[in-house]
C-alpha cells in the first residue's frame, strides 16, 4: 500500500506521550463517598458496562476521568451502584429486563439527586437521554465529546503547545446512537479539529455512516450467516481514507473497528482510538493544578 511507510511512522510517533497508564495518582470519588462527606458533584460520570469491564474500553474510561480531573470538573461515579442501562436487553426484545434495570438505575440516580450526566457510551447516552425520562429519570445527558467540547470552549481544557496529532490523518467513525439516533455529528468533529489534525471524512459519514455492526445486541452474539462481517466492511471504508488514526466515540465501535483493522492486517499502520484518548494525549493534562 502506498501509505504504509508514512503511516507506520505516524503510528510510532503517536503512542501515549504524556501519561503513564500504571501511574495511579487520581482519586475517582463515588457518589456514596461524596454524599457521605456532604458534597454533591456537578456531573455524574456514567461509565457504562464496556467502560467498566472491557480492558480496551477501560483505557477510554481512564482517559475521560483524567480529562475531567485535569479540567477541575467536579465529578463522581456510581461505582458498584451503576448497573447496565438495559440497552442490549431492550434491543434484543427483553423489555422486562430493560425496565427492571431502568427502574433500579433511576432509583439510584434520583436518590442522589443527579442533574447532569456525562457518558462515554452512546448507547447509555441514548437510554439515559431518551428512554429514561418517561420512566421517571430526567437528566441533562451529554456524550463525552459534547462535554469535552464544552471544556475546551470555556477554556477549562487547553491543548498543549506541542500538538502530538498536528497534521495527522484522522478519520472519525460516527456511532449510530450518537449520530443518526441523536443527530450529534458536530461535537466529535469539532473536538478532533482542536487537535490540529487532518480530519478525513469517509465516503459514508454522518447520517449516511455505516454501522460498525455491534448495535442492537449484535455485540453479544455471532453474526447471522452472510458474505462477510459488518465491521470488516466498515473498516474497509475507513481505511479507504488512508488514515493514521480511526477515531471512535463508542466503546463498541472501538472494539469492532480494532478487530476490522486487525483483519485487514493494518494494525501496525492504523490505530483505533477514542476521541477522549486523543484529547487526553494532546491536552495539557499534566500542567493542570495538582488535586
Amino acid at each position: 500500500m502506498a501509505h504504509r511507510g508514512r503511516s507506520q511512522q505516524g503510528a510510532a510517533a503517536i503512542g501515549p506521550k504524556k501519561y503513564n497508564h500504571t501511574m495511579s495518582s487520581i482519586h475517582i470519588p463515588t457518589m456514596a463517598e461524596m454524599t457521605a462527606s456532604g458534597q454533591a458533584p456537578e456531573v455524574l460520570f456514567w461509565v457504562g458496562c464496556a467502560g467498566s469491564f472491557d480492558d480496551r474500553a477501560k483505557r477510554i474510561t481512564k482517559a475521560i476521568a483524567r480529562i475531567l480531573h485535569a479540567s477541575e470538573t467536579s465529578f463522581a461515579v456510581l461505582g458498584q451502584e451503576e448497573s447496565c442501562t438495559g440497552d442490549p436487553a431492550k434491543r434484543a426484545g427483553n423489555e422486562f429486563l430493560y425496565q427492571m434495570q431502568a427502574a433500579q438505575n433511576i432509583a439510584t440516580l434520583n436518590g442522589y439527586g443527579i442533574k447532569r450526566i456525562i457518558t462515554g457510551c452512546p448507547h447509555c447516552f441514548n437510554m439515559l437521554k431518551n428512554e429514561y425520562p418517561e420512566l421517571g429519570g430526567q437528566y441533562e445527558v451529554l456524550h463525552h465529546t459534547q462535554f469535552i467540547r464544552e471544556l475546551i470552549e470555556t477554556g477549562k481544557l487547553r491543548m498543549s503547545g506541542d500538538q502530538p496529532f498536528k497534521g495527522r490523518r484522522i478519520t472519525f467513525h460516527d456511532p449510530c446512537y450518537l449520530g443518526r439516533a441523536n443527530g450529534e455529528y458536530l461535537a466529535p468533529r469539532e473536538v478532533i479539529t482542536k487537535l490540529d489534525a487532518e480530519l478525513l471524512e469517509m465516503r459514508r459519514c454522518k447520517q449516511n455512516a455505516m454501522c460498525c455492526g455491534a448495535g442492537g445486541a449484535q455485540m453479544f452474539k455471532e453474526a447471522e450467516p452472510g458474505e462477510r462481517e459488518v465491521n470488516h466492511a466498515r473498516t474497509d471504508e475507513a481505511l479507504e481514507t488512508q488514515p493514521e488514526v480511526i477515531a471512535t466515540g463508542c466503546p463498541f465501535c472501538n472494539t469492532m473497528m480494532t478487530d476490522g483493522v486487525k483483519n485487514a492486517n493494518q494494525e501496525s499502520n492504523v490505530e483505533v482510538k477514542d476521541i477522549a484518548e486523543l484529547i487526553a494525549e494532546a491536552a495539557d493534562l499534566l500542567e493542570a493544578p495538582a488535586p
Binding site: 497508564h21 500504571t22 495511579s24 495518582s25 487520581i26 482519586h27 475517582i28 463515588t30 461509565v47 458496562c49 467502560g51 467498566s52 469491564f53 472491557d54 477501560k58 474510561t61 481512564k62 476521568a65 483524567r66 480531573h69 461515579v77 461505582g79 458498584q80 451503576e82 448497573s83 447496565c84 438495559g86 442490549p88 436487553a89 429486563l97 427492571m100 434495570q101 455485540m219 453479544f220
Partner: peptide, 22 residues
C-alpha cells in the same frame, strides 16, 4: 444483566476496579 448488572459475566463488585488504575 440479571445477575451481574452487565451483559458480560463480570462480578458487579468489580465494576469500580478501574478507578484504582487511573
Amino acid at each position: 444483566i440479571e445477575n451481574n448488572g452487565a451483559p458480560w459475566a463480570f462480578p458487579a463488585g468489580s465494576r469500580g476496579d478501574w478507578t484504582q488504575e487511573v
